[in-house]
Simulated scan of single mutants.
Amino acid sequence: MNAFAAPPLYRHLDEMAPWNDRLQTLECIGVSDEAPEVKTFTFRSDNQTWFRYQPGQFITLELPVGDEPLMRTYTLSSSPSRPFSIAVTVKAQPGSLGTRWMFDTVRPGTLLRAYGPAGDFTLHRHPAAKYLFISAGSGVTPMMSMLRWLNDCAPWTDVAFVTCARRPEEIIFRKELELLGSRMPGLSLGFLIEERSSRESWFGHMGRIDAVRLPLLSPDFREREVFCCGPEPFMQAVRAMLDNAGFDMARYHQESFAAPAKEDVPPVSSPADDPVAEATPITFSLSGVDASCLSGQTVLQTARSAGVRIAAACEFGLCGTCKVKCDGPVDMQHNGGILDDEIADGYILACCSRPLGAVQIEA
């Protein structure tokens, strides 16, 4: 065999290791249009690994825009039942620097760093006999991931799928949803638009989802496990509507693309400058930097103040992008962005960890 021959294109799953976000990058293998200003980007690993995640989870992409890369979090629209590639479906909002860069730049062959997957917005965390998926706009992406998984693995599942858009041509995945509706015996589809379009006729439901239209689209919604995703005002309206209808809100789950405002990084001062502040020593071993963490400051804030780069996106303990190895005690208040076995292996989320003593960070 030629020592310089390319590795075989196909390998069995049991011959491959899972993708490691710290060692491998993503290679774009396809870009497709889904709706106006909406594209799907499909990726494979650059090192023949497979993707292990739960339908509905997200990844964080590192986009080389400007002097400092942008960290942008996108829900996976693909299904883990097809583990050789992953896909994100994104909508370019006005002023969306990162997404617009992807539209203009990412092509088959483009390599990107990525972190994840993470998130607990998935039906696997909330098994039920019947589901109701409610989405608006690009909020359909985690629902599509879950529905694709159900189609591959449990096509008989009882699912009511309601998706809302401004106009008919803006219904993301409409053709695929209609195809799945003809193949999945337990799937009922409900499309709801706000206004007619000159591009195509429409004979379906119109208006915004409310207490009158929801029972028409899903008469037994009170008996279902509800997953909702879309713009925050949309999700607020759905929450209020269900609550007023007497729905058991413990069975309501939502995902939002918006992160809370990032807190400012306080300036670092030495103990001599501020004798009241209690400074804790932090060593960033890979960077060869010793720093002092003021009382109340996170590992991420200290790293930035010391000129050490730790990748971070959400900065409230959810996305898992800032996961680093730590030797020493910390107080970590996260929101699900790290697993128990990762914590046991010595990893922390830098954005929400505050040292309780001298620590060494692998960064």
Rank of each mutant, 00 (worst) to 15 (best):
N2D: 13
F4Q: 11
F4D: 11
A6F: 03
P7W: 13
P8W: 10
L9G: 00
M16D: 02
A17Y: 13
P18N: 02
R22W: 11
T25F: 10
C28G: 06
S32V: 15
T40P: 04
F41P: 04
Q57P: 01
L63G: 11
P64K: 03
S81M: 03
S81F: 06
S85E: 13
I86C: 02
V88A: 01
T89E: 03
K91G: 00
L97E: 15
G98I: 03
T99R: 03
F103E: 00
T110I: 10
L111S: 07
L112D: 05
R113M: 09
T122F: 01
R125Y: 14
P127D: 04
F133A: 12
P142F: 05
M143H: 14
L147K: 10
L150Q: 10
A154I: 04
W156D: 15
D158L: 09
C164I: 05
R167W: 05
P168Q: 00
E170T: 08
I171V: 09
I171A: 01
I172N: 06
K175G: 13
E194C: 02
S197Y: 01
S198V: 12
E200H: 07
I209M: 09
I209N: 01
P215C: 08
D220P: 08
E225R: 13
F227C: 02
F227A: 03
C228A: 03
G230Y: 08
F234H: 08
M235E: 08
Q236M: 10
V238W: 07
R239W: 15
A240W: 08
M241D: 07
N244R: 15
N244W: 08
A245W: 06
A250E: 14
R251P: 06
Q254Y: 14
A259F: 14
E263I: 03
V265W: 09
S270Q: 10
S270E: 11
P271D: 12
A272L: 14
E278P: 00
I282K: 02
L286V: 07
S287D: 15
S292K: 09
S295Y: 14
Q301K: 07
R304Y: 10
A306G: 05
R309E: 12
A311E: 05
A312S: 15
C314R: 04
L318H: 12
C322Q: 06
K323S: 09
V324P: 02
P329C: 08
M332L: 01
Q333M: 09
H334R: 08
N335F: 12
I343E: 15
I343C: 14
G346E: 11
C352Q: 12
I361A: 00
